[in-house]
């Protein structure tokens, strides 16, 4: 297991290098106009000087080498067009905590609501709780988020008596963004947990337990839930990442200075250093998440194994 994990980690590192290098090369394919604030009014000389300053006139391998040299020193470079001449680290340092806080709160809320919802629905399959839950899930899935987010903001703020825009100091301002962000995840967890639990409940071991006279609530909790939760566990770390990236709507609606729209912004602005840094960050979180998901899965379900020799084939 440990040996396997070691190897797996090594490979993850390799994956990271491949991703970052790939993105690095892709970014160099973008039109050079994007590098300048006002390309139209620049002279050819200014453009050349600018490109040279950015090290873009070097051959590609040299550029990549430079980039990794810098990276090893923990230097992610300077932002150019997003905020000219400000260290990328400085920018990210301010934005990450807000997004992490929002993201964690929203994931926590969605687990707290989504899992009981799924269990409840599966336990009463075909009866009114199931139908009620389905209506909710269907609604969330059906109505585009951009639409109901706006409605929540418009009427929620009046209801709570808070300003339309986010204010970090005012804790009541956190309620609506966190609530809006978790709605999608609640529906996701509820829906899939119900699906898996319904699938599990026809299994033989459930029949056996029922025959042995185990109470239904205990079967649901100890047998079905644990088995049904396995596929969801793996999704947890990724869902956190997706929540942070996906908060673009919420952040732009409420003026929350987080990471949500940052990637779209900096790609559109050709701010290579920023894009690279964010991609590196997201990819790292993603790779770790994947690894974590797999480990979690082996912990929750002992039948699944990754070791080369041990375990069933």
């Amino acid at each position: 297991m440990i040996q396997y994990l070691g190897k797996r980690m090594g490979r993850s590192l390799l994956t990271l290098v491949v991703i970052v290098t790939l993105v690095f090369i892709l970014l160099r394919l973008m039109p050079i106009e994007g590098y300048f604030e006002n390309y139209e009014k620049l002279t050819e000389e200014q453009i050349q000087v600018g490109l040279r300053e950015m090290g873009l006139t070097d051959p590609m391998p040299v550029q990549i080498l430079h980039f990794y040299q810098q990276l090893l020193h923990g230097d992610l470079g300077m932002s150019r067009r997003y905020r000219s001449n400000v260290a990328v680290v400085e920018i990210l340092k301010k934005k990450i905590p807000i997004s992490v806080r929002l993201g964690s709160l929203s994931i926590l809320l969605s687990l707290c609501v989504g899992l009981p919802l799924g269990t409840w629905m599966a336990g009463h399959k075909g009866k009114w709780p199931d139908k009620l839950g389905t209506v909710f899930i269907v609604f969330i899935q059906a109505v585009p988020a951009v639409v109901y987010y706006l409605f929540i903001q418009l009427y929620g703020t009046t209801l709570l008596g808070v300003p339309l825009l986010f204010d970090e100091g005012n804790i009541r301002c956190w309620i609506l963004p966190v609530f809006s962000m978790s709605l999608g995840n609640i529906a996701y967890y509820g829906m899939w947990l119900r699906r898996y639990m319904v699938d599990e409940s026809t299994k033989d071991y459930v029949k056996l337990a029922t025959a042995k006279g185990v109470p239904k609530s205990r079967i649901m909790r100890n047998h079905i839930f644990r088995n049904a939760f396995v596929p969801l566990v793996q999704y947890l770390p990724t869902s956190f990442l997706n929540t942070v990236i996906g908060s673009i709507y919420i952040e732009s609606l409420y003026s929350i200075p987080g990471m949500g729209g940052l990637l779209v912004d900096v790609i559109k602005k050709n701010d290579n250093n920023m894009v690279q840094a964010i991609v590196l960050l997201y990819a790292t979180v993603g790779v770790i998440g994947l690894l974590l998901g797999d480990i979690l899965m082996t912990i929750v379900d002992p039948r699944i194994s990754f070791g080369k020799k041990g375990g069933v084939r």
Binding site: R11, L16, L22, L26, T238, I245, Y282, G286, V287
Partner: peptide, 21 residues
């Protein structure tokens, strides 16, 4: 798994924007 790691970790938006370019 490696392909997944790579594909899944290049954020979608990058791919979308590059393709639209």
């Amino acid at each position: 798994t490696e392909i997944y790691n790579i594909l899944d970790n290049i954020p979608n938006t990058i791919i979308l924007i590059l393709i639209s370019y």
